[in-house]
C-alpha cells in the first residue's frame, strides 16, 4: 500500500538503516547515563542488558513475558471473534447501528484505564481481568473498522452476484467477508499495541505476574533498572508482534487487494 509512487528502498538498505538508528539511540542513551544524567532517573542500557540477561536466564522474565503475551493476544483474538460479527451486524442492519451508535461512542470515549479497577473487582486479579482489559481496548476498533469496511464494499460485486440470484450466505462468504480482510488487518495492526497496553494496565493494578506487574514491582522498590528492563521487553514484544502481523497480512493479501 504505497501512498505515493516514491522509488522503493531496497530491503537491505532499510534494515541496515533501522539497525544504525537503533544503535545510535542506545549509544546516546548510554552516553547520557554515563556523562550527563544520573542513571537513577533514566536507567542505563548496559545495566539494563545485564539485568535482562540474569532475569531471562536465572529469573522468571520468560514467564512474565509469556503471561503478558497471553493476555494481550487472547484479548486481541477475543475482540476479533466478537467484534467482527458485531461490525457485520451493524453493516447489514443499519437500524441497529443507528440505534446503538450514541451509546457505543459513549463507551468508546471512556478511558478504558478507568475501567481497570472495576474489571479487577469483577473478574479478580487472575488472567481474566487482563484479557478483558485488552479486549475492551481493541474491540471497538474492530467493530468500527469492520463496519466501515463493509460500507465500502464494491456495489458492482454485490449487484453482479444479486443478478445471478446468489444466496445471502454465498454473498457473505464470497464478497462481504473477503472484502473486509484488509480492514480487519488494519484493526489488528492498531490493536496489537492497544492490547498490550490493556494487558499491562491490568497487570499494573492488580496481579502477581506479567510484565506490568514486573514494572510496578520494580518501581515499588525504586529499582529503576528493573522498571526499564520491563519497558524494554514490552517495546520489543510490541515490535515483534507487529512484524508477525505484517507477515501474516502479506501472506493473505499480497497481490490480491
Amino acid at each position: 500500500m504505497d501512498i505515493a509512487a516514491t522509488s522503493p528502498v531496497p530491503i537491505r538498505t532499510k534494515v541496515i538503516a533501522q539497525i544504525v538508528l537503533g544503535v545510535v539511540m542506545v549509544a546516546s542513551w548510554e552516553a547520557a547515563a554515563v556523562w550527563f544524567i544520573d542513571p537513577f532517573w533514566i536507567g542505563k542500557p548496559s545495566a539494563i542488558a545485564a539485568r535482562l540477561w540474569t532475569e531471562f536466564v536465572d529469573g522468571d522474565m520468560i514467564g512474565h513475558t509469556g503471561i503478558t503475551l497471553f493476555h494481550a493476544v487472547t484479548g486481541l483474538v477475543l475482540s476479533l471473534v466478537i467484534g467482527v460479527p458485531i461490525g457485520v451486524l451493524f453493516a447489514l442492519r443499519p437500524f441497529v447501528a443507528d440505534t446503538v451508535e450514541p451509546y457505543f461512542l459513549g463507551f468508546y470515549s471512556l478511558p478504558r484505564v478507568a475501567l481497570a479497577p472495576l474489571f479487577i473487582l469483577w473478574f479478580g486479579i487472575g488472567s481474566i481481568s487482563k484479557i478483558m482489559m485488552a479486549f475492551s481496548m481493541v474491540v471497538f476498533i474492530v467493530i468500527l473498522n469492520t463496519h466501515e469496511g463493509l460500507r465500502g464494499v464494491d456495489r458492482d460485486l454485490v449487484d453482479m452476484l444479486k443478478s445471478m440470484r446468489a444466496k445471502r450466505l454465498y454473498m457473505l462468504r464470497k464478497v462481504l467477508l473477503p472484502s473486509i480482510v484488509p480492514w480487519v488487518f488494519a484493526s489488528v495492526r492498531i490493536g496489537v499495541g492497544l492490547a498490550l497496553v490493556g494487558a499491562v494496565i491490568g497487570e499494573l493494578l492488580g496481579a502477581n505476574r506479567g510484565l506490568g506487574w514486573y514494572v510496578e514491582h520494580s518501581a515499588g522498590r525504586v529499582d529503576i533498572i528493573g522498571v526499564f528492563s520491563g519497558l524494554v521487553v514490552l517495546a520489543v514484544l510490541g515490535m515483534a508482534l507487529n512484524e508477525v502481523v505484517k507477515a501474516i497480512e502479506s501472506r493473505f493479501t499480497e497481490g490480491r487487494y
Binding site: D156, D159, M160, M164, V175, P178, Y257
Partner: peptide, 24 residues
C-alpha cells in the same frame, strides 16, 4: 436467468481467475 457484465470488470480481487469463473 440474467447475467451482468459491467464496465468495471467486477471480478473478486481476492480470488484467482479459476475461482472467479467458478462463481458463475
Amino acid at each position: 436467468h440474467v447475467g451482468f457484465m459491467f464496465q468495471r470488470d467486477a471480478l473478486l480481487p481476492w480470488a484467482d481467475v479459476n475461482t472467479n469463473i467458478a462463481v458463475g
